[in-house]
Design a protein around this nucleic acid. Structure first.
Lengths: 233, 233
DNA sequence: TGCCAAAATAAGTTTAGACATAGAGTTGAA
DNA sequence: TTCAACTCTATGTCTAAACTTATTTTGGCA
């Protein structure tokens, strides 16, 4: 049996994965039930259960009470993205981090962002525009709206000293987040902030986070040209 | 205690999450150990363990043996992306799916893709270019290389009838995948295939999958302009 | 003081056993 | 034939107890 973590459950996931990859168990096949596998591997049923649940979460197995466990027919590919704190990301790459607050004021909320945040259009939020640099080269430009109703104290913070992201993450953990990746041609402003040409394709991440008081913040991050967001599975 | 799934472990994760969001337990704080929480919630320690492990995976808690469980200071945001099978995605949106194989031939592998697949440059793979349509409007253009050494039988498949993705997914489950999102200005070819203007910003997904025989396939998917990849947490 | 070994502790894992529950399969009445 | 009611089974969940292991703390010794 292929080992992995010295843990029995991990060893079982590896072995089951191997059987699937080697097509001993084919897509759609029903695999032996937990009790049988427990006997085969010489472990308790709870251990087999843990292993199979991991593989089900990964999307390799479909499990249903009474119907048993089947190898997923068309496994959808799931990928876990880790969106790091900008500063940490830049410092980890061995570059020197700096950032510049381009604008900070109260402004009435545009319709599009109001919809994302489930707030009435035109209500006043804190609007913040920041550029983050690695070794003085623009890394990402962020355009952020902060809801002081869900994040009290935001108005008194000096966002030159601490980034909005870090302050928010540290002070207002969220319950739920919406996220989307898209591509946009750099606007004149994007181009200026990221020191590139207008029209250049930029990877855009928009993210809105909520806690029990409603939307905390909505941010549009434009990455520098050529940036790639990595995910693994 | 906030309920969620009728399961005790879920109820505990909800309650712990609430305490963190409501700042009863602050970032960096050490929370009571499993035994104490088990007494407080009136459950077995294993149940508390399961609940806290879920929150640790989510990134809300840091756990170390002997040192205890702490609320994560700078939680990195993790998001799970589900990359659906194109056809299913289009049909789910209520559109009619169709696809067109633009080119299919054996070609020597370009350097960049060879590197991604850990194969020698110039070795011959199956090169496939396909456009996927929803209601006859281009949805995505894919440029795929298939390694017949890791996916035997690929040369005999009629990719007009079944998409390469579906055939591969059904026949060659993978062990590991590399994925990246980026943005590119549409090349002349991209523009023609996606019926848009050259230079338009396109969301690009590149994905390479591996099994125990090596790289199975490497694909570059260009989505139609304006497409957004959604993730939630 | 500084260093190393031993003790203590909190999480990690496993087990056997129990009960819960979804849902496929079967039966019987209309 | 059809459908509702029931049965049965594989997974889902929980428990109490034990053992393992990483890591911190402590205390002895040089």
């Amino acid at each position: 049996m292929t080992e992995r973590n010295s843990s029995k459950a991990q060893a079982i996931t590896s072995e089951v994965r191997r059987r699937i990859v080697d097509r001993e168990w084919r897509q759609g096949d029903r695999i032996p039930d937990e009790a049988e596998l427990a006997v085969e591997f010489g472990v308790a049923r709870a251990t087999v259960n843990k292993a199979l649940q991991m593989l089900a979460e990964e999307g390799l197995l479909d499990r249903k009470r009474r119907a048993g466990t089947h190898v997923t027919v068309n496994p959808a590919r799931k990928a876990v993205l880790t969106i790091p704190i900008v500063r940490e990301q830049i410092e980890q790459a061995g570059m020197e981090y700096s950032h510049r607050v381009v604008a900070q004021r109260r402004s009435p909320l545009p319709a599009e962002i109001a919809a994302r945040m489930s707030l009435p259009e035109g209500c006043e939020l804190i609007h913040l525009r920041t550029v983050h640099y690695g070794d003085d080269k623009p890394f990402q430009a962020e355009d952020r709206w902060i809801n002081p109703a869900a994040a009290p104290g935001a108005e008194a913070v000096d966002f030159q000293r601490i980034t909005a992201n870090e302050w928010l993450v540290r002070n207002f953990p969220w319950l739920h987040a919406d996220m989307a990746f898209s591509a946009e041609n750099a606007s004149a402003r994007d181009a200026r902030l990221l020191e590139t040409r207008q029209g250049t394709a930029l990877l855009i991440l928009t993210r809105t986070t909520f806690n029990d008081l409603g939307a905390i913040t909505s941010v549009r991050v434009a990455f520098h040209p050529g940036y790639a967001m990595i995910a693994t599975h």
